[in-house]
Amino acid sequence: MARKEKTKSNLLAKCRGWIQAGATLLTNIHLPNFLKGEIYKGKGKTVCVPGLNCYSCPAASGACPIGSFQAIVGSSKFKFSYYITGFLILLGVLFGRFICGFLCPFGWFQELLHKIPTKKFSTKKLKPLTYVKYFVLLFFVVLLPILVVNDVGMGDPFFCKYLCPQGVLEGAIPLSAVNAGIRSALGVLFSWKLTILLIVIALSVLFYRPFCKWICPLGALYALLNKVSLFQMKVDKNKCISCGKCAYACKMDVDVTKAPNHTECIRCGMCVKACPTNAISYRYGFGDGKQNCKLNKEMENKKDEKTN
């Protein structure tokens, strides 16, 4: 049974690139709109997509959860979005940061950039920057759109307007390429956002997923729910030989043996592939699982015996 589960985990980790490509395609299924220079206007956009994907992308099949949240809280009618918050809590508990690792188009974009053969840099010494994304979530996504309002009580979507590079990558660039009206309307704000996009692109070549690690408010929200998500990492302590290969392989700077469901773990499965003893696998379900509980109790008993 354990052998079979391990095979499934390895297979999932190995197929990740294809799953990311498929998820990006499904998130942006209306491809002919790129040529028309207009966005999809169907009812599919009532539902949010799980990853960071601009709803002004011509091909976008759903709404962006971060953009939608800001649109609702920044409107004069509503001051909080139960719909988006509930949706994100549900997704966060069901999948956690598996969404970042497998389903987010912008995460995949950064990973593809990181494959460009250049010198790569570690982000281990930049760990304090991982807290910036919580600040972005709190201030740019929640507080500023609620508190900074115009005469009719409407707030700007501050994150989308000033920070998010997805709008330029998926919206402004393809739309302005075929639509002269949009091209002529681009100004200083576009230049600012294009600069952010270019910085993110340059950093992504050098560092692994810098936007996900440091800036993404959606990643921050899923990170908060990662410890209680049903999709989790499992480490069999009887099989683990403490070789450290998993921690070395992890590009999100997580030691899975110490914190299997760390806030920064995007379930990418690099540790699963690196483990020489098949001690690491994926697990889906409530709690820690019967096997894990039994093992933990055994380990605690062993510790007690040693101390006595």
Binding site: I39, Y40, K41, G42, K43, K45, T46, C48, C54, Y55, S56, A60, G62, A63, C64, G67, S68, A71, I72, S75, K77, F78, S81, Y82, Y83, I84, D156, P157, C160, K161, C164, Q166, G167, V168, G171, A172, L175, S176, I182, A185, L186, G187, L189, F190, S191, W192, K193, L194
Partner: peptide, 23 residues
């Protein structure tokens, strides 16, 4: 129930000027 899904749809089917950098 309180109409947020409709509000999301009405926002998502229009070009988001802030998102694309028009303002």
């Amino acid at each position: 129930y309180r109409g947020e899904a409709a509000a999301v749809l009405s926002k998502a089917i229009k070009l988001c000027l802030e998102c694309v950098g028009i303002g």
